[in-house]
Design a protein around this nucleic acid. Structure first.
Lengths: 211, 211
DNA sequence: CAAAATCTACGTAGTTCTACGTATTGTTTC
DNA sequence: GAAACAATACGTAGAACTACGTAGATTTTG
């Protein structure tokens, strides 16, 4: 059964765009709401797996809907979608245990990824938002790696060869190559020699603690 | 004859540290000044190749000294060394044709590099400052590369193999490898397979136009 | 305390990537 | 218009890096 979703936004064009996008992606869009109160009512009636809510809506904001659902013990996972980039709103979303937070201007790019994470009980906060707020959250994908793998990645980012990494960690270079192979498999990286180095550079800021 | 240098700072400890550092590095420190007027007098008397000046000094600021030297037609290349990170000061330095601008907290790391560039008629503005001001200047080191080399670098940053780059640029993969070899030589990168990829990632923002 | 996960390290084989060039053609510079 | 530079491409050789495993020891988890 495809994921069941309810969406809510007070702008009809955005609601339509969102709805069409989700239907195209074969999600099960149960209903749409044009305001917070309607959204809350629909969520209570249908208890969808996911609700994607704007913040600024008549009667109840998306965050207020989330709060009420939490109070009611409704297990629908709330994804907020908004233009809002302020730290205050981010903090409120965090403290309410919001599952997802997407910026409208990146919705098309991020929504599938967000839904996928949320369905697997992981939160997803827009990387663009976090970058804007200068907040660092460890990407989920790094959480699949072991401590030794993260150490290897960190040293690769510093332009060390397998040999040098082996010396650094007091293990053989063949073991380092095995770790790299495992990393490649977990992250589904291409098999060319530099793909791990590129990934490591892209995530370097999360690797600093793994020395 | 080693480069001749005059330094000026109103804090004795900083002046001493700077002087000792330069002497250790075998630079020819002709004189030190504790204020702007003294600095200006010494520069006029000695016409050193380089003058390293604090901004905040009694009587004349470092920028005022630079201005007077320019008015006098003195060809001493001024390097500013300061804690100051404001856009205003940066703009003033730029418009005065200051050769170098170093942040005090990074002086040890950057000074040699700065002097080297300045002696070769290139300006050097602290990368930390530019990052802070969110200003992008093409690093000098990229200016040594040809257009094709920059294209190769850009594609490496996008995780392409030599084969893929060859297809992309309609040249053979052996030619791509030759370019990479030339890049490695020019940039003095280590010979391990990933060093070019890492350099490319670090400079990715300057490579976007080379598609 | 057993199962699972992690870490370690090796054998073998193939591919990729590097270094050492040489050499021709086309473009740019002075 | 000659010299310098850039771009192109190849031969040869060795090192590095990947993939395909197997396998035992240690640590973590339930």
């Amino acid at each position: 059964m495809p994921d069941s979703i309810i969406i809510a936004d007070d702008h009809p064009l955005i609601l339509k765009g969102l709805s069409d996008f989700l239907l195209e992606k074969k999600y099960n869009v149960l209903a749409s709401a044009k305001n917070g109160r309607e959204a809350y009512t629909l969520i209570k009636a249908h208890t969808p797996e996911i609700a994607i809510l704007d913040i600024q809506m008549p009667f109840l904001t998306g965050l207020q809907v989330a709060k009420k659902c939490k109070e009611d013990g409704i297990e629908t996972r709330i994804i907020i979608i908004t233009f809002e980039k302020s730290k205050d709103v981010y903090d409120q979303a965090k403290s309410l245990g919001i599952y997802g937070y997407i910026l409208k201007e990146f919705a098309i790019e991020e929504l599938e990824h967000c839904i996928s994470d949320v369905m697997e009980e992981r939160s997803y906060f827009s990387p663009e938002l976090l970058k804007h707020l200068e907040i660092k959250e460890t990407p989920n994908i790094l959480k699949t790696l072991t401590v030794t793998e993260l150490k290897v990645l960190h040293l690769v980012a510093k332009n060390n060869t397998a040999k040098e990494i082996g010396l650094n960690l007091f293990i053989s270079d063949r073991t380092v190559e095995k770790h790299k192979s495992n990393i490649r498999e977990k992250l589904k990286l291409s098999s060319n020699a530099q793909s791990i180095a590129i990934f490591a550079k892209e995530h370097e800021s999360f690797l600093a603690e793994y020395t």
